[in-house]
């Protein structure tokens, strides 16, 4: 240690918020590397967070190292701003990063930390989407050794992943992966795009917003830079399909609350035991309701 060492001038607001500047530098450097090699799982020194690993510590470290006083943060879990996890994370950032704005409106946010969903409203170039990832490596289901997985990624060898899709079609006549759908980024690396549903996978394609994915426990950060070509793994003759929310008669189900027929729906069991469907993106649903109310009053 150099006892005379002085910290450099804090021009980039490094000493702001919860993370110390060394942690921030580490995460930011890793983010730059991850953006430079789209889809590559960049290892980094993941810090301990004041919450259990697996509760979004990877996403939180990304958020905390990027956030500044001018930022507006939105946190969602399963599409909802009101779920316990989202509320707690948001509250934690409010506590530790003085002056930061938080919002529930997708369009107002500059930073969006999310688990399970990409917001329904198209994101813009001035927004960053941060996805919390439990298991970053899509190859983990076919190869237990990380050393071998790294070689497979390096050589672009995803045949065993495709074999798994083949087996799916053989057994079930369709690809049954509901979320974490393996997706090839920029023609090489295949990523696990976090637990987003199949419905959200096409929305990675040439996304205007930078998408960062962080796995705290697995100590990996990877990125889908803006306008990157992404392609879900599929066969030439068995194309990738999203959930279509059709009922038995082939009609597209609508949100039971706002009536939307163009959003990802959650299936709910009502108190009488019947099934109901509702927008998973609570902000989207609320905005539609507000617009409808305006139309009615006008």
């Amino acid at each position: 240690m150099n006892p005379n060492y002085e910290l450099p001038l804090d021009e980039a607001d490094y000493s702001f918020g919860f993370l110390d500047e060394f942690a921030k530098r580490e995460v930011r450097r890793t983010i730059l590397k991850a953006i430079s090699i789209p889809g590559y799982q960049t290892p980094y020194a993941s810090r301990e967070m004041p919450m259990g690993r697996g509760f979004g510590t990877g996403g939180l470290q990304l958020t905390l190292s990027l956030i500044g006083q001018d930022d507006t943060l939105k946190v969602i879990d399963q599409g909802s701003d009101d779920s316990v996890n989202a509320v707690n994370l948001r509250h934690f950032v409010e506590l530790t990063c003085p002056g930061v704005n938080t919002t529930e409106r997708t369009t107002e946010a500059t930073l969006i930390q999310s688990r399970h969903r990409i917001p329904e409203v198209d994101l813009t170039e001035s927004q960053v989407l941060i996805l919390q990832v439990p298991y970053p490596d899509p190859l983990v289901v076919v190869e237990p050794s990380e050393a071998k997985r790294k070689v497979m990624h390096g050589e672009g060898d995803y045949s065993r992943l495709l074999t798994k899709l083949y087996e799916d079609i053989v057994q079930f006549d369709e690809i049954t992966i509901s979320h974490r759908y393996p997706t090839r980024i920029n023609g090489h690396y295949v990523i696990d795009p976090s637990p987003i549903p199949r419905y959200d996978v096409p929305r990675l394609y040439r996304s205007k917003a930078l998408i960062l994915l962080g796995a705290g426990r697995e100590k990996k950060i990877y990125a889908v830079p803006p306008y990157t070509v992404t392609e879900p793994l599929a066969f030439d003759d068995v194309p990738f399909r999203t959930e279509d929310f059709r009922d038995a008669n082939g009609h597209r189900r609508a949100c039971g609350r706002c009536g939307a027929t163009d959003s990802f729906l959650d299936e709910l069991i009502a108190e009488d035991g019947s099934k109901a469907w509702q927008c998973s993106d609570s902000d989207y649903c609320n905005q539609r309701l507000a617009e409808l109310a305006q139309e009615v009053s006008a």
Partner: peptide, 12 residues
């Protein structure tokens, strides 16, 4: 299938 997929055949 695995071996065929390794040799870049991608038609189910």
């Amino acid at each position: 299938a695995e071996r065929l997929l390794m040799s870049d055949l991608a038609h189910y």
